[in-house]
């Protein structure tokens, strides 16, 4: 077997094992610990109606699935954006796309909840998508005007601040009862996600993942730059629209339920590329999805457990784990130039 093939198999094996381990760990641990037998009993349906079953099925399981699927979605979204902007530190959070989504979701929540209308999961995703596209529109308008890719990131961070600022102001003026809810969400958190939510975002994320995977041929050609991609037959306009829609929808679905989660979109694709020693989209898109799940589960554990019963925001933990990766990318790039 070729050396590369061995590496890819090894990479996937590591990711799957880590994922399984972390999935189990997030079900077992928490403010109340359960034994493996208890968890298995609950999952197989042998035990119903007990406190354990309640905690595991309605709190831990949805939360675990959310961290896994949404984390994976963020990582893929980040990878797509990095490809589009040919910039290794592009991602939904730094480009302000998550914050744009946060803004519109907060607005929608305040508007509807004050009138006593509950927001459905679908409505959440739609309003979040509108915000993503709003920020994306700004970034796309700015990107041809900035020569250096680092400036693009600066613009994105600024857009993020503007959106966060407006969100904070809106939250301040909202009713007290809503603020509590909004506050933890607007900092980024996997708490409070129920199985209904999981059923709502999973199809969106998986359809986007499939679409991204089917675009891997174009993405691969696009890596050599727009000119060569076009000359080898890529329909650039359609490709760009597709890439933008898929990456925005992915980060919108994540933000609608977990709020803005930082650095997953940058750190995970980078680590995955390092692990696989390639950036071939066919391999990296599925691997980034698995890696995003691993990364978020790993970060969600300390967020839940470390200071239980109070929780850390997921972004604080992902930032601690992800920001050093970004610094290492920047330093690595500088050295090469």
């Amino acid at each position: 077997m070729k050396k590369e093939t061995k590496r890819y198999i090894l990479g996937y094996t590591i990711l799957v094992l880590l994922l399984l381990f972390l999935m189990a760990a997030s079900l077992f641990s928490g403010s109340v610990s359960f034994s493996p037998e208890e968890v298995i009993k609950v999952l197989t349906g042998a035990e119903r109606g007990t406190t354990a079953a309640n905690i595991i099925l309605s709190i831990r399981l949805p939360r675990m699935l959310a961290a896994m699927v949404l984390g994976g979605g963020l990582a893929v979204s980040g990878y797509l954006l990095q490809t589009y902007f040919a910039n290794p530190i592009a991602g939904p959070f730094v480009l302000g796309i998550s914050s744009g989504a946060k803004l519109t979701v907060a607005m929608a929540m305040i508007f509807f909840l004050q009138r006593g209308i509950p927001l459905t999961s679908g409505a959440l995703i739609i309003s979040s998508f509108a915000g993503s596209m709003l920020s994306m529109g700004f970034i796309l308008a700015v990107s041809p005007k900035v020569k250096r890719s680092s400036m693009l990131v600066v613009c994105g961070v600024m857009i993020g601040y503007i959106c966060s600022g407006i969100t904070d102001i809106a939250v301040t003026f909202a009713d007290d009862s809503n603020i509590v809810n909004l506050h933890s969400w607007s900092m980024g958190s996997f708490s409070g996600i129920d199985s209904e939510d999981v059923k709502a975002f999973s199809p969106v994320i998986f359809i986007c993942l499939g679409a991204a995977f089917l675009m891997s041929k174009q993405i691969n050609a696009y890596r050599l730059g727009e000119v060569y991609a076009q000359s080898s037959g890529v329909n650039i306009k359609a490709f760009r629209v597709g890439l933008i829609l898929v990456s925005s929808l992915l980060s919108a679905a994540v933000t609608a339920f977990a709020g803005p989660v930082s650095f997953v979109g940058i750190a995970v694709p980078h680590l995955i590329k390092k692990l696989f020693k390639t950036a071939d989209p066919k391999l990296i898109i599925p691997a980034a999805f698995l890696g995003g799940g691993v990364f978020c589960l790993m970060c969600d554990l300390p967020a839940r457990i470390l200071f239980a019963p109070s929780e850390l925001s997921i972004s604080s933990v992902t930032a601690l784990a992800g920001a050093p990766v970004v610094i290492s990318i920047m330093a690595g790039r500088h050295r090469e130039q």
Binding site: L224, S232, G233, K273
Partner: peptide, 24 residues
């Protein structure tokens, strides 16, 4: 062109784009 982590063989292979299937 400055793609990340792309071998020369992969870059040349990109020329086969119009002849390959859905996943390239």
């Amino acid at each position: 062109t400055d793609p990340e982590l792309m071998t020369c063989r992969e870059a040349v292979g990109a020329g086969r784009y119009p002849y390959t299937g859905r996943l390239g």
